[in-house]
Nucleic acid binder design. Structure first.
Lengths: 116, 116
DNA sequence: TTCATATTACAATAATACTTGAAATATCAT
DNA sequence: ATGATATTTCAAGTATTATTGTAATATGAA
């Protein structure tokens, strides 16, 4: 992931409705969920759902597949993970103090305990 | 960190200039750096720097302190770490597959290897 | 006090993002 | 074909965010 992709992903996550969609799709896992069901779950109108889920899809955070009349959306854990890696490693240069401030670790430097 | 704080932090990070500022301040560490020096480092005008660094400060990602004529800004690793924790634990419910897709781990569930 | 430096605040504009409702498309069932 | 369902597309309006240049404030030095 490069800087531009990271900015797109961060902007996509920086909205209540979209964060709710992500949360919902995380729970649904590999089964995913249809646009309509997602809309009911997060209490958003059809066009609102299309608007926000398109932003998530453009950022690579979710994928879609048409199944009969419905379109099924699934979370892309890989892209979410890539964003976390980018923030810790590329953006924050694997800084020791960041790992000291949260319970997130990387391959390059693993702390022993955590102060969550 | 709650959802609203996470959205503010994500929105603050979702901009090229602000991401550059973060990167710069990570390198500067506890010494921090003045508004003017930050401006030179990221090639942004004074008022641009004030605008963007204010957004980062509102989101709690940086702190400030006046020292004589300058204002010194420092990164808040704690808030950055809190955001990472929020994404992994609250938003993504510590989902196994997220940890499988990146080299980020949490206290609650630590994977053995990584597929970075 | 006067001047130079460092930074912020403000106002005007431009650019993006969001919301809403109506119309269009795609698929399936009859 | 016709009608019903699921979703997207579009257009209009509103709101938010970003940029630019200028003015104001705060501090220190002469």
């Amino acid at each position: 992931m490069n800087e531009s992709q990271a900015i797109d992903a961060l902007a996509a996550l920086a909205h209540q409705t979209r964060l709710q969609i992500i949360r919902h799709l995380v729970v649904k896992g590999q089964n995913g969920d249809s646009a309509g069901e997602i809309g009911s779950a997060v209490d958003a109108s059809p066009s609102k759902i299309t608007f926000h889920i398109s932003a998530l899809e453009r950022a690579g955070l979710v994928g879609s597949e048409r199944v009969s009349r419905q379109i099924i959306y699934r979370i892309h854990f890989q892209q979410l993970g890539a964003l976390l890696n980018y923030l810790v490693e590329d953006c924050c240069a694997n800084h020791q103090e960041l790992r000291g401030c949260c319970n997130v670790e990387t391959d390059n430097c693993r702390s022993s305990g955590s102060d969550k």
